[in-house]
Design a protein around this nucleic acid. Structure first.
Length: 460
DNA sequence: GCATGATCATGC
DNA sequence: GCATGATCATGC
């Protein structure tokens, strides 16, 4: 070995030598050539052939004596050549049985991950993993403020498992630390305490955006201009992000938009671009040109909804368009639609009263388990329609009506166009039988306005 | 007044 | 040029 596995500085110095190299360059060539058979993942090869140890038991850090856990994770490169996390950073698998009897400070999660040695490599699907270029290597541990948020996330996950709801866990439940699914398919299940229902195997993980902030901090680079909601670790220990945000909204509930503008002492043009986003920033005390660090790290999707006097949103809630060719190749479990529904949302409701918009409610929300199953039905039906080649149901005065699941198909979501115009299309994998067209107006999934009213606005 | 098709406007 | 959040238009 070229380093001392019991000495933290020695481990980190040795790890840093990886920067700019590939595993093929950095590892002992004879050992690698004799033992690497083109199988395994990057992390395993890194452990075996660079650090030259066999993966150890699950509950202790990889370098137990030095208290360091080795983690490697892929990067992608943006058009402007900056690096971003390609995916979430997966930490230890959750043992549902053990978890419910733990406290955060003495938990397996914290013992194992309190100090991480991070190795980020540039992913390239054309290359063998031992030819990936390693870009960023450094030790990292939680800031005090983030640790307080993560502790609350961890406790939320533990308490849900305690309640016998491990099978209902969602990444949208929590802010920075998620319980991500781990395993090839929905057959990767485990027993859970306090329920007979088998639960998907899950692991603690940092959300992809959170990993970007880690990368920025260790690479000392900026990924944007941010304002903070939480100004001290003490605040993060005392209150959740949710409580802090709801508290900031409270003084403005019942106010008209003009009253909010007056109170926050900002100048906003109501017809301007990101008017509602600016108003939200003003209420939260964030400068208008800044992104909100905590929301970004937690991948919170903020949506402003205008309600009619009868509580029904003026519009349904849209999501990004899907590609017809892609959806037929996806499985639900790793589909884009499920991914977005596994996020945490902040809904901000304004309601028309006597033609004035009044701030009524700010609410954090993530889709309940049973509704995600409903959304799955919509997704499955959509995939089926695309595969069938029966997109168009009828054409009436040049308007083409489709067979995609509509509002009466499902109480949660439906599919509708979402395009620049009717000629803004994606290619169809199967030619449409009725019209013979090989491309179709871009569509997306929408949350039904009635669902938003009943399940998000009206439910306390 | 709702359901569904169609489109706008901004920012990256 | 396109993705995204938001909104308009038409017909029943």
């Amino acid at each position: 070995m070229n380093y001392n596995p019991n000495d933290k500085d020695s481990i980190i110095q040795y790890a840093r030598l990886l920067t700019g190299q590939t595993l093929r360059d950095a590892c002992n060539k004879e050992i690698l050539e004799h033992n690497y058979k083109g199988k395994g993942n990057f992390g395993q090869v890194l452990e075996k052939f660079y650090f030259e140890y066999e993966p150890n038991n699950e509950s202790e850090p990889d370098f137990a004596f030095a208290g360091i856990e080795l983690k490697s994770s892929p990067l992608k490169q943006l058009q402007n050549l900056e690096y971003r996390a390609k995916e979430r950073l997966v930490l230890n698998i959750i043992n549902y049985i053990d978890l419910i009897n733990q406290d955060f400070e003495t938990s397996g999660f914290y013992r194992k991950n309190a100090c991480l040695l991070l190795v980020f490599y540039l992913h390239d699907s054309n290359l063998d993993i031992i030819d990936y270029i390693i870009k960023i290597v450094d030790e990292w541990s939680f800031t005090e403020t983030d640790l307080a948020v993560i502790k609350k996330d961890w406790e939320f996950i533990r308490d849900k498992v305690r309640a016998g709801k491990a099978h209902e866990l969602s990444e949208g439940d929590t802010f920075y630390l998620g319980a991500c699914t781990k395993g090839q398919n929905s057959n990767s299940t485990r027993q859970q305490p306090n329920s007979q229902i088998l639960a998907m195997q899950r692991a603690f993980s940092f959300k992809q955006s959170y990993v970007n902030h880690i990368i920025a901090s260790i690479a000392n680079e900026s990924i944007g201009i941010y304002g903070k909601l939480i100004l001290s670790a003490e605040r993060a220990q005392a209150q959740t992000i949710e409580e802090i945000v709801i508290e900031k909204f409270a003084p403005y509930l019942g106010n008209t938009i003009n009253q909010i503008i007056d109170k926050t002492n900002i100048s906003l043009n109501p017809t301007a671009k990101s008017f509602y986003a600016n108003l939200t920033n003003a209420i939260l005390g964030i400068e208008l040109d800044k992104k909100i660090e905590e929301f970004d790290k937690a991948e919170i999707i903020v949506r402003t909804v205008r309600l009619k006097e009868n509580n029904l949103p003026c519009e349904d809630i849209s999501f990004p368009t899907f590609k017809f060719e892609k959806i037929i190749k996806e499985e639900w479990i790793d589909s884009d639609f499920k991914d977005v529904l596994d996020h945490k949302f902040l809904f901000i409701f304004y309601q028309y009263e006597a033609k004035q918009l009044i701030l009524k409610k700010a609410k954090f929300w993530n889709m309940p388990f049973e509704d995600i199953q409903e959304a799955e039905n919509v997704w499955n039906e959509t995939k089926r329609i695309v595969q069938s080649g029966n997109i168009v149901n009828k054409v009436i005065s040049n308007r083409r009506f489709t067979n995609f699941p509509n509002k009466s198909f499902n109480a949660v979501a439906h599919v509708r166009p979402h395009a620049k115009n009717a000629l803004d299309t994606y290619t169809l994998p199967v030619k449409d039988e009725l019209t013979g067209t090989t491309e179709y107006t871009k569509h997306c999934f929408w949350l039904n306005s009635s669902y938003v009213r009943d399940e998000i606005y009206l439910k306390s």
